[in-house]
């Protein structure tokens, strides 16, 4: 049976080309357009992996992710975060705190803080961040890396 991948993103176009790319590679692609619906879909469909957008109406990707990691049932569910500010988040482990800190870069700073807090709570960060502009084929490669075919 094909593995299920859920795409949660409020950008319809992005959801569309990601599901196309996943389906082309033989995955069963599910979609949700906001965090709230996404969570419901996770509960009902039990996907093998979630592609989660960071900034979304109703429930942001972060809130949803936080919720998943706290929930025993979903804490091991692999999550790939899609975002416009991923590059500063990737090296959160390796780099010293200030390598990317630019005083005017408030959105990124806020994201860093959120991730740092999350780690402070003893929660794992997402399996992977993918930065925009997204290459759909690359996303599929990463999915394959994490859960196989």
């Amino acid at each position: 049976m094909a593995k299920k991948v859920l795409v949660i993103d409020d950008d319809e176009n992005q959801v569309r080309f990601l599901t196309v790319a996943l389906e082309e590679s033989g995955y069963d692609a599910l979609k949700a357009y906001n965090g709230k619906d996404g969570l419901e879909m996770i509960r009902n469909e039990r996907p093998d992996l979630v592609l989660l957008d960071l900034m979304m109406p109703k429930k942001t990707g972060f809130t949803l992710f936080h919720q998943l990691r706290k929930d025993d049932e979903y804490k091991d569910l692999p999550v790939i975060m899609l975002s416009g500010v991923a590059e500063v988040l990737e090296d959160l482990d390796s780099s010293s705190d200030d390598t990317h800190a630019r005083p005017y870069d408030s959105l990124r700073e806020a994201m860093r803080d959120k991730i740092r807090n999350m780690k402070g709570d003893g929660l794992l960060k997402p399996e992977m961040f993918i930065d925009k502009p997204i290459d759909p084929e690359l996303v599929v490669d990463k999915v394959r890396e994490l859960i196989g075919n």
């Binding site: 176009n13 925009k132 997204i134």
Partner: peptide, 9 residues
């Protein structure tokens, strides 16, 4: 991002 995804399709 939108253009790239569209171009893929």
């Amino acid at each position: 991002n939108t253009c790239k995804g569209g171009a893929y399709m």
